[in-house]
């Protein structure tokens, strides 16, 4: 493997891990995020690069499910951008209007980018991942219980 092959792969692996992190941070509730920050504390001083704010995104669908896009309707989104004292910049975009949760998530995103803290952040997030997985599992199994097998009957003579 050459060096030029290796760098994009490592970058994309890291990017994938961060995407996974941000997906969990988007779904963690405000109390969970606060508890994680507590557990990781003390948090280095934080500078707000962008004041946490709420706005909208236009959600799109696709014609027929897979075709040309169309505008389906909007959703509320909160976002924040922070820099921690060690220099890492963290972002958050999440559905809903909870700007405090968005800011907490952006701080966690910044902490995670510090290689020394990444393990601790992931460990603190494990219960949230477990809760989300359990909820999804519950939906799957409840829904699976309603699976039907329709059968057709031949009526009358041919």
């Amino acid at each position: 493997m050459t060096l030029t092959d290796k760098i994009p792969n490592e970058t994309s692996a890291l990017e994938g891990a961060r995407q996974s992190l941000m997906a969990v941070l988007a779904r963690a509730d405000r109390d969970e995020l606060a508890a994680i920050l507590d557990r990781l504390g003390p948090v280095p001083p934080v500078t707000d690069l962008r004041q946490p704010e709420t706005g909208l995104v236009m959600l799109r669908g696709r014609t027929g499910g897979e075709g040309a896009p169309f505008n389906l309707g909007e959703a509320t989104v909160s976002r924040a951008a922070v820099r921690i004292a060690s220099g890492e910049v963290g972002f958050c975009y999440r559905l809903g209007r909870d700007v405090h949760a968005a800011r907490a998530a952006a701080i966690l995103d910044a902490l995670w980018q510090d290689g020394q803290r990444r393990g601790a952040v992931e460990a603190a997030l494990a219960p949230v991942r477990a809760r989300l997985a359990a909820e999804e599992g519950q939906v799957r199994s409840e829904t699976a219980a309603t699976k039907v097998d329709f059968f057709t009957l031949v009526r009358g003579e041919d």
Partner: peptide, 10 residues
């Protein structure tokens, strides 16, 4: 509210 952008299609 301001709009931040459009999503990738669902």
């Amino acid at each position: 509210l301001p709009r931040f952008g459009a999503t990738i299609p669902l």
